[in-house]
């Protein structure tokens, strides 16, 4: 693990940059040109980043007692289930905010901490920006619903 890396932010700076550009939809050739390097380097870095993220997501799932339903290495997301809480859970990663574990809430309106909700919204905006997901009127939507809208676009299994 690189010196600046941690569990909540497992990628090195170059891995972050390349992974973020790929997630935004840039082609490998374009990224190689932009960063003045080879396509092979970009591909290798991407694979290394995905492998690191996958390992970290699985570690976090294990620590949080989640049963892994499906891992999405390219999206850096993990869909799981907490057997004790009897809730679905999702683990996400963004280059700027790191990892977060999400639980399904039937009554999210009971959560009234404004700072918490604002932070959540910021995180979701970051995910949406990184993954290229566009949601209209994001500022007016409750973060829980906003999260659901983003996650259903990124995780096909949530639509059913």
């Amino acid at each position: 693990m690189c010196p600046a890396c941690s569990v909540s932010s497992p990628l090195s700076q170059s891995q972050k940059t390349i992974w973020a550009l790929i997630t935004k939809g840039f082609s490998v050739a374009n990224i190689a040109k932009k960063l003045n390097t080879t396509r092979q380097y970009i591909n290798q870095t991407r694979l290394a980043a995905e492998a690191k993220l996958a390992t970290t997501l699985l570690d976090v799932a294990q620590v949080n007692d989640l049963q892994v339903t499906k891992l999405y290495p390219k999206q850096a997301m993990l869909l799981g289930y907490h057997p004790s809480l009897k809730r679905k859970a999702i683990i996400t990663y963004t280059t700027s905010h790191g990892l977060k574990v999400w639980y399904w809430h039937d009554h999210p309106e009971e959560v009234t901490d404004i700072d918490f909700l604002n932070q959540t919204r910021q995180y979701l905006l970051e995910i949406a920006k990184e993954r290229g997901v566009e949601i209209e009127n994001a500022a007016q939507i409750h973060p829980a619903k906003f999260a659901h809208m983003i996650f259903t676009q990124l995780i096909p299994e949530l639509k059913t």
């Binding site: 569990v7 976090v60 949080n64 639980y103 399904w104 009554h107 829980a144 999260a147």
Partner: peptide
Amino acid sequence: RIKGWLPKTPSVPKQPSAPS
């Protein structure tokens, strides 16, 4: 009615002591 996902700060696994 609002239903959706809200975060919980992930528990960070304890890392093995680095040999560095």
